[in-house]
Design a protein around this nucleic acid. Structure first.
Lengths: 193, 193
DNA sequence: GTCTATAGAAAGATAGAC
DNA sequence: GTCTATCTTTCTATAGAC
């Protein structure tokens, strides 16, 4: 591969290096999944060698855990006014799955890493704590936990078809058609009281 | 691992061996995903060595293509009376994601193999041809292709959370709660006329 | 704080014997 | 028709130098 020769020389600083590795890992795991990327490539994109990954994080698995914690740290989408929840979720999932959307996304990281059993265990805990819990407390009526998880399952499925598989029906769908139908499905899961 | 010593001695027959490898591959890719299993293990479970995989299928990628073709060959779930579609899909997805359900399933194979870009390409074509197309022709109203893909996306998302991630909210959910809410989401995607 | 060098395992694929 | 043996590459992780 390419030598990382043109990178701006970071200071020899443990904290800065650790952070560079962590950001590189977040992007790499989101694009390629846990099994689809090696620590060599992650380190190279951060401008260091693979040794430092294990020095600062112990192992690939622990690096993944740290990257997941960052990926799932923003749960603002699942807070706010419950009456406009379906609208906000629909807008967000369409925007996040456009062709030119940010490739760093917690649910893309989840989809692409879940096939690895150890990664799945780490992800289960993080998504429950950061996404299922706040979303559940926005839902009224019975089975709030189940419905919160189902909403996340549907969002994940849409990401799978629009970004990972690249199903033509969904990548080429009109915005209006996407909006109406995705929102109808969300509404079916939200209005249960 | 374990030597395949107690297996019934197959005849030295190309067709039978090819089929044994194919069935072993179908099960292995469904349980572990494309990147989670090696040709050595697939061959061993079929009672042969890895050489024969390449001999009969050319490469791991071509073996995967053949396994996918089998996995997606049964599309009866997406045929029949449109008026009971939501009910049938809901029953099927709950049954397929029970704890003791058959681990061989086309959408589990899809979820666990999609992170690999070459596998994703093969899967995109197969799911469009075998699942999206028949389901689309059952749907009335506008955007039938999009809605068919969204229904499959939702089913995939449920499999992801119930079988791959193991989200507690969905693995421990009551059957009645699951049924009501999953069906409501399907209904939102089906009734658009 | 970061490197080179390397150990040790496992992957996909092939040559050539029987 | 099927095998053993091997090539080549890639992976995670570590020892030890500077």
């Amino acid at each position: 591969m390419r030598k990382a020769v043109a990178l701006p020389k970071r200071a020899r600083n443990a904290a800065a290096t650790r952070d560079a590795i962590l950001q590189s890992a977040l992007a790499a795991f989101s694009r390629n999944g846990y099994d689809g990327i090696g620590v060599r490539e992650i380190a190279q994109a951060a401008g260091v060698t693979a040794v430092l990954v294990n020095r600062y994080f112990g192992s690939k698995e622990e690096l993944f855990g740290a990257a997941v914690e960052i990926a799932f740290s923003d749960s603002t989408l699942f807070e706010g006014d419950p009456s406009s929840l379906a609208h906000r979720l629909t807008e967000a999932v369409i925007a996040k799955t456009e062709k030119d959307a940010d490739p760093i996304d917690p649910l893309l990281l989840l989809l692409r890493s879940a096939p690895n059993p150890r990664a799945a265990e780490i992800l289960r805990e993080s998504i429950a704590r950061h996404f299922e819990r706040p979303l559940k407390s926005l839902l009224m009526g019975p089975c709030a936990s189940e419905r919160a998880a189902m909403i996340l399952a549907f969002i994940s499925g849409l990401q799978l078809f629009r970004k990972v598989i690249g199903s033509k029906a969904l990548t080429d769908g009109t915005r209006a058609g996407l909006y109406a139908n995705i929102k109808a499905a969300f509404q079916g899961l939200i209005d249960r009281d």
